[in-house]
Structures are given as structure tokens and as C-alpha cells.
Simulated scan of single mutants.
Amino acid sequence: MDRGSLGFESGPLHRLRGCERVLIAGAGGGFDVLSGLPIALSLLERGQQVILANLTFTAVTRTAAVEVGPGVFEARADSGGAQRYFPEKHLAEWLGGRGYADRVYMIRKGGTKAVRASYRWLAEEWGIDGVVLVDGGTDLLMTGDEAGVGTPLEDITSLLAAQALDVPVKLVACVGFGIDAHHGVCHAHFLENVAALSKLGAYHGVFALTPGIRAVDEWLDAVAHVQRHTPGRESIVCASITDAARGEFGDHRSVARTRDAEDELFINPLMSMVWGFDLDAVAGRVLYRKEIEDAATPYEVAAAIEAFRDRIALRPWRALPG
């Protein structure tokens, strides 16, 4: 039974109520844009315009996607090439098949300056008045001094690029609490960072991706479609989040990439919660932002982060009580 749409009366989404054109962008590459799809579909239900974009891991030069702006490529349902890994095209296919605009922008991976130019072009091209930067996982909230920061290169590059936009509403959404343990993230530090943002008035709450809500059901279908068309390179993050939303628990393995893995999975309901924050506040807490704000290449970003962490005292690992 359809229980309606994700609530806009309170929590993170109510800040988008007055927006006309909202950019939903995947921060960390890969399938991150899919983690923002429930928000996008809910906005579309309300008659708001949505522009979908993703920092891409797709080899854009091996596709028929057209470069439309600086480092920005337009993937459509009929874009050819890169058939083994082209999640943006397969999302566009699904969107077109459901009657939505079959357009997903791909932002080519680059340094902070290049990604900032891509975001600026998207904002000016569409006249956006809201942006939601989405992370499949929670390492986007890492400030730099945590015991583990996960895979920050793409996330923080996108974060600083989006921070530079002059638009009224800028939000961060993280979905997949616990998933980044595989990448060494200390989730006690994530919660500590949430608490610090709460003191700043920048933590906007959580909501659940619950089946029976139209946007959630469509998102589950979209993820399944893209996963089917990415054999051998399915997203473990997306699989974990959708499995959690369906009520799976523990060491549940739904995609080929996890079936023979040695690490035990811990699928649980917290993975299907969406956490919302003020984007400028999150960006302002990145301790190494000055070191990478003008980085020309991804290598420069990665080297600066590593050098920063080598010269500071890191927070000691802290286990969650249990």
C-alpha cells in the first residue's frame, strides 16, 4: 500500500519546500546519485524541478555522452559506450521508462578547481535555488582528524565545490550508517561530528527509507535496474542500503561482489536512515579545506590530505558501546 511521500513538514526536507529547481548530486562518485533518488522523486511528486548529477567513475571519453559544460557530460537513455560500468546511463534508462526526464549529468573526476567549475556551470545553466549533496555512506562528515576518514578524496572535493555555490538552500544528506566501517571509519567519531553540528544548529534530523512510500518503492526498483546492468561491478553500498530498507539483517549478501567476501556484513535498520545537515557548516569543519581548495588534480587532493593527517594528532579509535 502506498503510504504517501517522504515528509516535508519537518526534518531535512522541509528546507526544500520553497525551492523551484533543486540539484541532487552524488558526492563520492559511483552510485552515490542513486542514494539521493528518493529525495529527487519526492520533489518531483511535489511539482518541483530536479536536476540529477554525479561525480562519475565512468570513463566518459569511452561513452557517447556529450560534454555540455566544463567537465560536465550529459548521459541519456540512449548514450552508448562503457556498457560494463555506466550507472548514470542506466539510471537515465530507468527514469525515461517511468516518464521522467532521462537526463543525468556526469561530473568528470578532477581537482577541486575543476569540480567547482562544473558545479558552477550546473547552477548557472539551470538557475538552481537548492542543492542536496548526497553521500552513500557517512565519511562525508569526517573533518580530517578522525581515526579513519574513509575515502574522502571525491566526497570532500564535491563538498567544497558545492559550498562555493551562491544558492539559498544547500544541504548534505548521508545514508548508510555503518557501511564505511569497511573503509576504516570510526562511527563513534561520525556521531561525535553529528553532535558538534547539532550545537551549531546545522543538524537537521533523520528520516527512514521505508517501503510503501512511493518514492522509496521507485528508488528500490531503480537501484535494482542499475545493479542488473552493472554485472560484476554492482554497488555494495547501494545493496546494503536497499537490503536494510527491505528489512534484511546481519550477514545478508545480495550481490555477487559480497558473496565470496571474507568480511562479515552487518546489514541493519540504521543503514536506511537519511541524515541531513547544513552543507556550509559541514564544509566549514573540514580541517584541511585550505590545503585543497585550489588543488588542480585528484592527486594533489589526495597528497594534501595524507600530508595533513601525517602532521596532526588523530582522535583515538572509540568503539560504540554494545
Rank of each mutant, 00 (worst) to 15 (best):
Ala224His: 08
Lys89Gly: 10
Gly26Asn: 03
Gly96Pro: 04
Ala82Asp: 05
Gly7Lys: 12
Gly7Trp: 05
Gly184Leu: 14
Gly29Ile: 12
Asp32Phe: 07
Gly81Val: 09
Pro316Asp: 04
Leu270Cys: 05
Ala82Leu: 09
Gly148Asn: 05
Thr210Lys: 15
Leu320Ser: 02
Arg62Ser: 08
Ser254Val: 15
Ala319His: 11
Glu293Phe: 11
His229Arg: 15
Leu13Asp: 02
Ala27Lys: 08
Leu34Arg: 07
Glu93Arg: 10
Ala239Ser: 01
Ala161Trp: 03
Gly247Thr: 06
Val172Pro: 01
Ala222Met: 13
Val216Arg: 09
Ala64Trp: 06
Gly69Asp: 01
Trp94Cys: 00
Ala196Trp: 15
Gly71Ser: 06
Ser42Gly: 06
Leu43Ala: 04
Ala244Thr: 07
Ala283Cys: 13
Pro269Thr: 07
Gly322Asp: 10
Gly150Asp: 05
His229Ala: 12
Val131Phe: 02
Val274Ile: 05
Glu293Pro: 07
Ile312Thr: 03
Leu140Ala: 02
Trp121His: 02
Ile156Thr: 06
Thr258Glu: 00
Leu209Ile: 09
His182Trp: 14
His252Ala: 15
Tyr85Phe: 12
Asp166Val: 15
Arg84Glu: 13
Leu6Gln: 02
Pro211Arg: 09
Cys238Ile: 10
Gly11Trp: 13
Arg46Val: 04
Trp219Arg: 10
Gly205Met: 15
Thr157Trp: 02
Ile128Asp: 00
His204Lys: 15
Ala283Tyr: 04
Gly69Ile: 10
Asp310Ile: 08
Ile128Gln: 01
Glu293Cys: 11
Ala195Glu: 13
Val132Pro: 08
Gly96Arg: 03
Val134Glu: 00
Arg103Leu: 11
Gln49Ile: 08
Ala75Gln: 07
Gln48Trp: 05
Tyr85Lys: 11
Arg318Ser: 09
Val185Asn: 01
Gly110Asn: 14
Asp145Tyr: 11
Leu153Cys: 12
Leu191Met: 13
Asp78Ser: 14
Asp260His: 13
Ile107Gly: 03
Ala188Leu: 12
Ala161His: 06
Val206Lys: 09
Ala101Val: 13
Leu279Tyr: 01
Gly137Thr: 07
Arg21Met: 11
Tyr203His: 07
Gly69Ser: 07
Leu171Trp: 03
His189Ser: 02
Val172Tyr: 01
Arg228Ala: 15
Ala302Ser: 08
Gln227His: 11
Arg15Pro: 03
Ala101Met: 05
Phe177Thr: 00
Glu67Asp: 10
Ser118Gln: 05
Ala27Asp: 03
Arg311Gly: 00
Glu264Trp: 10
Cys238Val: 11
Pro298Asp: 03
Tyr119Val: 08
Arg246Tyr: 05
Asp102His: 11
Ala164Gln: 09
Tyr85Glu: 06
Tyr203Ser: 03
Arg21Asp: 10
His187Ala: 06
Gln227Cys: 14
Thr61Ser: 14
Cys174Val: 01
Trp126Pro: 09
Asp32Gln: 06
Gly148Ile: 10
Glu300Cys: 03
His90Cys: 08
Ala188Lys: 14
Arg21Asn: 11
